[in-house]
């Protein structure tokens, strides 16, 4: 079985038509579906949050069969993720794509659980601490993309679960969780 780092690749990764955008509707729907699954799976295990369309992305080429996705195909597969709420374009030119292997809502739930598990209710912490602090080690929150984290926090703030305020340092924000 072929692997990419520690990621196990599915058998169809060696199937050349997998790397050509299929023109027939039914075939293409299935192909897009398989690409969506694979991208999310790969990003989740590798903790990848951002895919740049113009940069090399290991999943988008297969040197074993000498095939790689065209720009058009990459954009099509990522656009399919975006339309399902599993990804977001970060710019109008569709050059950078944020991959949401947890949806924003799911990230918010993870944060709530994280707060409960660590008894952080009514206490103050910072955004950076959630990403890099000792409490988050070993959880999905460790090293989470800052943009994604802020989105989830804003969602929770909107629901009245916490308050975000400007912290002492310029590049970090403080968070006060409510009980």
């Amino acid at each position: 079985m072929q692997t990419l780092g520690n990621f196990k690749l599915p058998p169809f990764f060696n199937y050349p038509p997998y790397f050509t955008l299929q023109p027939v509707r039914d075939t293409r729907e299935k192909q897009v579906q398989l690409w969506k699954e694979l991208i999310l799976d790969f990003c989740k295990t590798q903790k990848i949050f951002l895919i740049g369309l113009e940069e090399d992305f290991p999943l988008f080429s297969n040197p074993a069969i000498e095939r790689s996705l065209t720009h058009e195909a990459r954009e099509a597969f990522l656009a399919a993720l975006v339309s399902e709420g599993r990804a977001e374009w970060l710019d109008k030119g569709h050059r950078k794509c944020l991959i949401l292997w947890h949806r924003i809502q799911d990230w918010a739930d993870i944060i709530i659980n994280f707060v409960k598990d660590n008894g952080l209710e009514d206490s103050v912490t910072t955004v950076e601490e959630i990403r890099t602090g000792p409490e988050s080690r070993g959880t999905d929150l460790q090293g989470v993309d800052r943009v994604i984290l802020m989105r989830a926090l804003k969602l929770l703030e909107h629901k009245g679960k916490l308050v975000i305020f400007k912290g002492t340092s310029a590049d970090d924000e403080g968070i006060k969780f409510s009980s």
């Binding site: 169809f12 199937y15 050349p16 038509p17 790397f19 050509t20 299929q22 023109p23 027939v24 039914d26 075939t27 299935k30 192909q31 398989l34 000498e66 095939r67």
Partner: peptide, 17 residues
């Protein structure tokens, strides 16, 4: 289904389904 590559335009059995 099709495979377009620098090697040319080839057809394969459709495995997607």
């Amino acid at each position: 289904c099709r495979d377009v590559s620098p090697d040319g335009f080839r057809f394969y059995i459709n495995l997607f389904p």
